[in-house]
């Protein structure tokens, strides 16, 4: 590094680069020897080409890939336009019934008893009293006919109605400046979304599909439907909602799927 004056770059943080990380990792940097690095790189390449297997489960490799995935979260946060609406479709295009998907087959679905079901509210919410089915039915309802896109590659047009999530969050006195809305479900599934997506006009807590009360396999009595996320970011059979500045993770997210997964 030279001491020559440098031109200010728009890519450089204004206060200079934080040196603490470098000094903390100095011993690590010092321990890197060039020959070892080269040998590692070559064997990594060889492994990739020869087996294509073990390298995916090498914890160091996976750590780097997950860091890139975290970077992709940031890129997608920037790309996300909170005012842009997803395309909507006509009722004639709606798939009935919707396509079932969960981390277990449809015959393993455990129906939730809607008479005793409650939505627990936690975190940065002023009114934490749990909600029941009739309270959701008493709220203003809205409907969206939107495309469901699965991370696997399939898709279908669905007709969902229920309570707008922004309206609900305002009703329970949620801190909408918080960063995340975390969900947990009756089947142990979890997921979490960023607040801008939670406040998007096409994000609802759905109770109906094609104007009929939601059926058990599709998340009854309450599930999330957002037009701007992949399918797995739409938890079903929701039993708990938390508003937080701590990201709650998620079932597939913890298994390596990209967290933001915005469409």
């Amino acid at each position: 590094m030279s001491d020559a004056p440098r031109f200010a770059s728009m890519f450089k943080p204004a206060g200079g680069v934080d040196q603490t990380i470098l000094s903390e990792q100095a011993h690590l940097v010092a321990s890197i020897n060039r020959r070892g690095l080269l040998r590692g790189a070559v064997s990594l390449g060889a492994l990739t080409m020869l087996t294509g297997c073990d390298v995916s489960n090498d914890e160091q490799v996976r750590g780097v890939l997950k860091r890139v995935s975290a970077w992709n979260d940031r890129v997608q946060t920037t790309l996300f336009d909170p005012n842009k609406l997803a395309p909507t479709y006509s009722e004639a295009e709606v798939l009935k019934p919707p396509r079932y998907n969960a981390y277990y087959p449809i015959d393993k679905v455990k129906p939730v008893d809607r008479t005793v079901w409650r939505l627990e509210l936690t975190g940065l919410v002023s009114d934490k009293r749990p909600w029941n089915v009739s309270q959701f039915a008493a709220m203003p309802q809205e409907e969206w006919i939107i495309r469901h896109v699965c991370v696997e590659g399939w898709d279908y047009v669905g007709q969902w109605s229920g309570v707008n999530l922004r309206v609900f969050l305002e009703k329970i006195g949620a801190d909408t400046t918080a960063a995340y809305v975390n969900f947990r479900c009756a089947d142990g599934y979890t997921s979490s979304i960023d607040m801008p997506t939670a406040l998007h006009p096409q994000t609802i807590l759905a109770t109906k599909y094609a104007r009929e009360t939601l059926a058990d396999p599709f998340g009854a009595p309450l599930r999330l439907r957002t037009a701007t996320k992949l399918g797995f970011k739409n938890p079903k059979w929701i039993t708990g909602l938390e508003v937080s500045n701590t990201r709650g993770g998620g079932y597939w997210e913890d298994r390596g799927y990209n967290w933001f997964s915005g469409l």
């Binding site: 995916s56 890139v68 597939w252 390596g256």
Partner: peptide, 9 residues
């Protein structure tokens, strides 16, 4: 999940 990590990196 691993394949997605590779692809999007």
């Amino acid at each position: 999940g691993n394949a997605l990590l590779w692809h999007f990196a």
